[in-house]
Amino acid sequence: MWWSLYKKEWQESLFRFSLSLALLTAAYVFIYIFMERETPLVFAVSLAVVFLHIFYLFIMLLASLIKEWKENTSHLWMNLPVKGYVLLSAKLAAAFTQFLISISYAIVAADLILQRAMRMFEDSAAEGLTGIISMLVPLYRELIPWVLLAVTNGALQLGIAAMFIFIFSKVVRPFGWLAAIVLTILANYIYTWIKNIPLIERSTEWLPLLKGEEIYKKIYALYPGGADLMEVSEGIMTNVYLGQIAAELLVLTGAFFLISWLLDRKVEL
């Protein structure tokens, strides 16, 4: 049952996904070729690529739901004798799979781009810099899982927010979407506040996965004598704990089931 829905969502979104991949490919090619000549523009394009990934689930889920209503297929979708969480998880999973494919592609592309950057700098740069640059690629490769984690977390949060905003716009009419945006910001604010209560904060700090200190060491090690400067910035060092990730996922799951409940009980066609 779930797989059929998942397949249908893939079929529905295939065009959007292909379009996004095509755009990204164009961006990567552009960065790869023009990185030395159009540096500011390349920087802007790179930033756009990162933002596209953070907002990928937001955009795709919103597009999918809006289309469902705009093309009246909601009349059929809402009458499917299937629980709301099944319907929504199929949409979420299809978009998330595409997100993973797209981000894997981005990682490979970034790696190739960095390699080219390295070769370029090796040819031209002064003696002292080559050492730093030769460390750049291994550092990138080491840190990328954590970047991936952060982007995925952000993308998921935004994806859930998109579903909430759309679904709520079909519960409260008119201007439900506006209320939903305010509610989302408010909920996020409260969540951050709760997260930072010392007791709660400590309760999630188990199983450290990544130590902030080590990252800073590696970054500072790029500069000659950088290791000595480290003491200064101890305050901004943070660790990543498995407990935090679990808490984050738990909250998102809770929000997801709340949205599913709204779809089953409160949404109007």
Binding site: N72, T73, H75, L76, N79, P81, V82, K83, R265, V267
Partner: peptide, 16 residues
């Protein structure tokens, strides 16, 4: 509710 769809088949007047 929407979940009554297990007892009800709904035919829309729209191209659904």
């Amino acid at each position: 509710s929407r979940l009554s769809s297990k007892d009800i088949a709904y035919l829309s007047d729209a191209d659904s």
